[in-house]
Design a protein around this nucleic acid. Structure first.
Length: 316
DNA sequence: AAAAATCCCAACCGCCAAACA
DNA sequence: TTGTTTGGCGGTTGGGATTTT
């Protein structure tokens, strides 16, 4: 039967909130604080579902909500965060197996004539709240809507135009533009999950901090390009011709010691990054902050992220 | 000018995990 | 340990606004 609804739907107002309802809700929360949403409508004298009250408050009435258009800076940050965090880290044995298969499959397929963008497909699975958390005053709902109505479309358009430009048959192009059905159910990761990885390292990679982009590119089988510390756009463009990265290499890229991913994801303050000079890329700053504050050499992880998020031209 | 199509976003829904009894 | 409640998430929908025909 499933669980009972959060409240009786009968006799409740639905649809758009009125100014009067907004005022009642605001006044109540100012007086009593947030929380206990189920009982809030009754106590506040609102004919609304508790969940509806919570959503209205969080997405619209909170005093710190920033309204208005998404600025170019914010858009840039959303795009970068979506690339960085949008591939929802999946947890649990099943999810780890699935992701492992996808990662390995990704490299095998890339090694072949055509790369099939599994990881890009995974980007359809997003962490809106996490992204919104890095954009002061913006809500996950707003970010999600913005992505779905603006950026997501551009993403799809870009795939489509790429396919046209490479002269793929139309039906093939269509298939590639369509998301692969790798969709997880909504899954929170509140438990701490640790990646137990060996400490065996490839020193040349780990010491790449001071290496020039050229040497780094050589060491990591990447073509010449900006390294994560460059003030350039950080695009790493691994071409198919250089796909001799083995599955072993891909696993080495996770070699970041025993690291709590949820900590990692929540660590860097991107809002700070946004406030910084615009030539400093947020993801680069994430790596730098992790290195500085957590004491991790992030380059192996960074290079993996850099690699599979490298196809950032899809947003044009 | 009006109808149709499309866009946009607030609100809703169902599911999940943590907290609690 | 088990069942229930609560808060939170991402996906989807409905309807008003805007654009196109």
């Amino acid at each position: 039967m499933g669980r009972s609804p959060c409240c009786s739907k009968e006799g409740l107002n639905r649809g758009a909130w009125t100014a009067q309802e907004d005022k009642i809700l605001c006044d109540y929360i100012k007086a009593h604080g947030e929380g206990r949403w189920r009982n809030l409508p009754k106590r506040a004298g609102l004919k609304r579902c508790g969940k509806s009250c919570r959503l209205r408050w969080l997405n619209y009435l909170r005093p710190d909500i920033k309204r208005g258009n998404i600025s170019p800076d914010e858009e840039e940050l959303i795009i970068r965060l979506h690339k960085l965090l949008g591939n929802r880290f999946l947890f649990g044995l099943t999810q780890i197996i699935i992701v492992s298969c996808l990662v390995i499959g990704h490299f095998f397929l890339r090694a072949g004539s055509q790369s099939y963008d599994f990881l890009s497909s995974l980007s359809l699975i997003s962490r809106w709240s996490l992204i919104a958390g890095r954009l002061p005053g913006r809500t996950d709902n707003e970010i999600k809507n913005y992505w779905n109505t603006n950026l997501g479309k551009r993403h799809q358009d870009h795939h489509a135009s790429d396919d046209r430009s490479t002269k793929l048959p139309l039906d093939t192009a269509k298939k590639r533009a369509e998301p692969v059905a790798v969709r997880t159910k909504a899954l929170k990761c509140s438990k701490q999950v640790f990646l137990k990885v060996s400490r065996a390292e490839t020193p040349d990679r780990l010491n790449s901090n001071q290496t020039s982009s050229e040497t780094r590119d050589h060491q990591t089988n990447m073509p010449p390009g900006p390294n994560p510390g460059d003030s350039n756009n950080g695009q790493s463009s691994l071409t198919n011709s250089e796909d001799n990265i083995s599955a072993d290499d891909s696993m080495l890229d996770f070699n970041i010691g025993e690291l709590c991913l949820s900590d990692l994801l929540n660590f860097a303050d991107f809002s700070t990054s946004l406030a910084c000079s615009s030539d400093h890329q947020p993801d680069v700053m994430l790596y730098e902050e992790l290195e500085t504050n957590v004491g991790l050499n992030m380059h192996p992880f960074a290079s993996f992220l850099d690699y599979y998020t490298g196809e950032d031209q899809w947003l044009g």
